[in-house]
Structures are given as C-alpha cells and as structure tokens.
C-alpha cells in the first residue's frame, strides 16, 4: 500500500538499460539521465562485505584505475544482466537520481527496454532487478520496437519499416508493421565488440596493450566503418608488451577501419539476413523509404554508407540516435494509458 502511495508522487520512467549506457526518460520531462552502466564496488575487509563506491560517470572514470579494494564493473553484458545485485543497486541509484530530491522514495511505473533475443530468464532478471530498485510496476518492451517509435517511424502503418539499433552489447534489426514486429534478429555485436577489436588490433600489430577507455576514445575520434577521403590520426599511449613500459604511438582511421571489419560484417550479415526473411511487400516498402539507424553505434562514422553499399538501400540516421530507445519507451508509456499495455506487446 505504501508503495502505491509513493507511486502517486513518482513519474513514470522509461529505462534503456544498456550495456554501455543507461538512459532514463522521465514522463513529461524527457531524457533526464544518461550515464555509463558502470558501478564501482569497494570491498570492506573490516566488515567482510561490499559497498557501492560510485555509480555512472564517476565509476567509469575509475575503470582500469582502481586500487585492490575497489572494482569498477559493468553489470550488464551483451544487453543482459551479468551481475544481478549490482544491477539492482545501479538502477536504484539512477531512479533516485532521475527523480531528483524528493521527500518520498520514488516508486514509479517503469518500462524497461530489453534486447529482442533475450531469454525469459534474462527478462525475469531485468524485471526483478527493477522491482528490487523500487519500481511498483515493471513493463518490458523489445528494443527494436522502442527504437523505431523513438525515431519517429510510422510503426502503426501497414507498411514495412526497418530499424537497426546498434547498442553497446547487441545490435537489433527489425521489420515493423501495424505496431508489431514482423521479423527481428539480435546479434551480440555492438560498441563493446568494436572496442575489443581495436584492443586486439593494437596488440597484434603494435605489440602494445591499451585499455578499454583508450580504445573507446580511439573509436570515437577516428573510428570509421567505410573508407573516406580524409585520413585522421590520433596519438595514444599504451604499455609495450615486450619492454613493459608505456609507449606513445599514432593510429590512423584506415587502421581502425581494418580493425573493425569483423564486428561490422556481423552487423551487415544480420541486416542482409533480415532482408532475406522479410516478406516481399514489406521489403519493397523498406527499399522505397530506407533503413533507419539508431543507437550509439549509429554514430560510428560512415556506418550508414557501409550499409548502403552492402544492401543497395537508402539508409538514414535518426536524430539523436543514442536516445531513441529511451524516448520510444517514453512514448509507449504515454500510449499505454490510452490503449493498454497490449498495444506494443508489452510484457
């Protein structure tokens, strides 16, 4: 009863619980939180327990820079929960932060976006984690549907709309028509795989070990999915594996393009498979209007060019692709009151 009373003073939330970033859309206010999905845990040897040291951006700054008693971890892997307890704590922190300072502990209705390919066990873990974080009611929506709605695609029309959401842990491709998913697939390739590929490339070709944060910075600065006219360079530092001392070296965008080939081909393969499986009428609609890219991975330079080249279809990038999923969830929360949770197959 107290939970429902507190619910009166809590606004509904849409949460994009991503492997790399967690975004929260507060109903009526928009995106109010965009933080890395990272938690720093401190081991308390005196009491024999663990305590949360930092969450979000502060914790991310600790990645790879922590002393022995602090561990900065990412509790989600490949779009699903890898550490249930830490995820719950992280959600609790984010929900409280999203609501700002309140006299009551918030107890909102929460809509969480889950990967299309996640299993029932993984979905149950996400649901229970949100409930443990204080949500009084939890709804789940599949990420491609939320991404399409957030991008402003006409999902209600009797026309095929194809969306490709490239997240941190997974990439989801779906064909949507009449508020339902006609075909969808999820591949466990995303921004994290890009980072790993860059680390592996540098280690293999330079004999230098770089960290995750450095790899992500390289990807943001000179990462590219398609050869461009301009070659960009970046100077980075890493530990020389043979000498054991830090060394500085320079990478260029063509090298990163080469490094990213394997994960990029995974995404291209998923899109091609989706086009093969799409009914012809809907495929024709997609060919006419194009594929819409969403997610943080859509900001990788020239990813749209690569997909255009590989598929021969028009490809457009949605406005603010990083927030499409959370914004789409927010719109669904709006519609849920009018049409009920069954409109988009909410669980």
């Amino acid at each position: 009863m107290l939970k429902s009373l507190r619910g009166y003073f809590s606004n509904d939330l849409s949460i994009d619980l991503g492997t790399a970033n967690t975004l929260i859309y507060l109903r009526g206010k928009g995106i109010v939180l965009n933080e890395p999905s990272v938690v720093a845990i401190r081991e308390e040897t005196a009491r024999g327990g663990r305590a949360v040291q930092a969450v979000g951006a502060e914790a991310k700054n600790m990645l790879g820079r922590t002393p022995g008693n602090i561990t900065a971890i990412r509790p989600l892997k490949d779009g699903v929960i890898a550490d249930f307890t830490v995820t719950e704590k992280m959600l609790q922190h984010f929900i409280k932060k999203a609501h700002g300072s309140r006299y009551f502990r918030p107890s909102p209705r929460v809509l969480v976006c889950v990967p299309y390919g996640s299993t029932q066990v993984e979905r149950r873990a996400i649901r229970e984690s949100a409930e443990g974080a204080g949500a009084r009611k939890v709804y789940l929506i599949e990420e491609p549907m939320a991404a399409a709605i957030g991008a402003g695609m006409p999902v209600h029309e009797a026309r095929g709309s194809m969306v490709l959401d490239v997240g941190g842990g997974t990439s989801e491709v779906a064909v949507i028509s009449l508020n339902g998913i006609v075909y969808a697939a999820s591949v466990r390739v995303g921004g994290d795989r890009f980072d790993e590929a860059i680390i592996a490339y540098v280690r293999r070709n330079y004999g230098i070990l770089i960290g995750e944060a450095t790899s992500e910075r390289i990807k943001h600065d000179i990462g590219s999915a398609y050869p461009g006219e301009e070659v960009r360079e970046i100077s980075v530092k890493g530990r020389n594996l043979s000498e054991g001392v830090p060394r500085s070296f320079t990478l260029n965008s063509n090298e990163i393009l080469e490094a990213l080939q394997e994960p990029l081909q995974g995404i291209v393969g998923a899109v091609k498979a989706a086009l093969e499986q799409t009914p012809p009428e809907l495929g024709a609609d997609v060919a006419e209007r194009g594929i819409v890219l969403t997610g943080g991975g859509a900001m990788l330079r020239d990813l749209d060019k690569l997909l255009m080249e590989e598929t021969g279809l028009p490809v457009v990038i949605a406005d603010e692709p990083l927030t499409c999923v959370a914004r789409g969830g927010g719109k669904v929360l709006e519609l849920m009151d009018q049409h009920g949770p069954g409109l988009f197959g909410l669980e």
Partner: peptide
C-alpha cells in the same frame, strides 16, 4: 494523422503533477 505517438508536451497533465 493516425500516429501512435502523441506529442509529449502534455505528458505531465495527465498524471496530474
């Protein structure tokens, strides 16, 4: 017309903040 996603400007009024 027929868009399933209404504008969010009046989002807070329905919940009565």
């Amino acid at each position: 017309t027929g868009s399933p996603a209404p504008e969010l400007a009046d989002a807070s009024t329905r919940r009565g903040g």
